[in-house]
Amino acid sequence: MSLQTVARKEYHQCRRSPAVLGTVSLFFLSVVFFAAIQWVPKIGQVGYSGTPRFTLALINSLGQPGAIFVPMLGLLVGYHTIAGERESGALKMMLALPHTRRDVVFGKFLGRVAVVMAVTAIAGLAVGVIALVTYAAFDVKSFVINTTIWVLYGSVYVSIAVGFSAWMESKRKALVGTVSLYALFMLGWDALMFILQLIFIGPTLPQGAQLPDVIQFAGVLNPARAFMFASRSALPAYYELTVYSESNAAFLQDWIGFPILAVWVVVPLSLGYLRFRAADIH
């Protein structure tokens, strides 16, 4: 019951944050805009499996804004949850109540995930309404699956943020950690992949060749790439919206995206909890 109490408190408290409301507003407006113009990236106009354009437009409406705002929202709602209260002294008061440290970490995670889930659901609902009114047809199955996977993807970043918040002693350190990891995922991972290529292959690939499977797997460890693999596994239409190399290796099949995302949810949160459980907050 204590876990539910913490989760409920976090959910209601987070909804009133001006920074969260601002990010949510930008996300919502972007989603509505992409849905209204029925935009499909150029790669999707070529066609891979003959997927109808309205289906591609439907799943891409969340895809373009979500790639930016979902990770940002997940980190924003989570980085200060424990570290901020530790700095202010509110955490001592919380632990003086019948809440264990496990209740605090996992309750805060569940409450903040519920915020991301609600935001994604509302954005998805807006896309659904626009699709029902203006699209030639409405692919309900693709719509539901796509929205669900986006919630899972957002949960990864909430876990990372809450894990950092539980690990660090101050809100600023938690913020630096989450922003650094976000920059690595969004900007630095390709540079890391190129460094691996330089080490094991050289500056250029032979004509018609692709990266070895092991290096490609290192790329899939990025939650953003794992999300695309998971999406292609559940929605083959995503093949028309991505350009990732294909491989016969078992560890590079599309389904591998789901266990990698699950690991990114479980590991940061667990490490943060283990550190927080042993920390002296007094």
Rank of each mutant, 00 (worst) to 15 (best):
Q207K: 13
Q207P: 13
G208H: 09
G208W: 11
G208D: 07
G208C: 04
G208Y: 03
A209S: 03
Q210D: 04
Q210N: 04
L211R: 02
L211C: 02
L211M: 06
L211D: 04
L211A: 00
L211P: 00
P212Q: 11
D213K: 11
D213C: 04
V214P: 11
V214Y: 11
I215G: 00
Q216N: 15
Q216S: 12
Q216K: 13
Q216W: 11
F217M: 15
F217R: 14
F217E: 12
A218G: 12
A218K: 06
A218F: 14
A218Y: 11
G219L: 01
V220C: 01
L221G: 06
L221W: 06
N222V: 01
N222I: 04
N222A: 02
N222E: 01
P223C: 08
A224D: 01
A224H: 02
A224T: 04
R225N: 10
R225C: 03
R225F: 10
R225V: 13
R225H: 08
A226N: 01
A226Q: 05
A226C: 07
A226Y: 04
A226L: 06
A226G: 01
F227C: 13
M228F: 13
M228N: 15
F229Q: 05
F229M: 07
F229K: 12
F229I: 06
F229A: 00
A230Q: 08
A230V: 10
A230E: 08
A230H: 05
S231D: 15
S231K: 14
R232C: 10
R232A: 09
R232D: 07
R232H: 00
S233Y: 15
S233T: 14
S233N: 15
A234M: 14
A234C: 14
A234F: 12
P236D: 12
P236I: 15
P236M: 08
A237L: 07
A237T: 05
A237Y: 09
Y238M: 10
Y238I: 09
Y239I: 07
Y239R: 14
Y239C: 10
Y239Q: 12
E240A: 11
E240Y: 01
T242H: 09
T242E: 06
T242S: 12
T242I: 14
V243P: 00
V243Q: 07
V243D: 11
V243A: 15
V243Y: 07
Y244P: 01
Y244T: 09
S245H: 12
S245P: 13
S245R: 10
S247L: 04
S247W: 02
N248V: 11
N248C: 00
A249N: 10
A249T: 07
A249C: 05
A250H: 06
A250F: 14
F251Y: 14
F251P: 03
L252R: 05
L252I: 02
Q253S: 11
Q253W: 12
D254R: 06
D254W: 13
D254G: 00
I256Q: 11
I256D: 02
I256G: 01
I256L: 10
I256W: 05
G257K: 04
G257E: 05
F258C: 01
P259G: 00
P259W: 09
P259R: 07
P259N: 07
I260P: 07
I260K: 08
I260S: 01
I260N: 02
I260D: 05
L261Q: 02
L261Y: 08
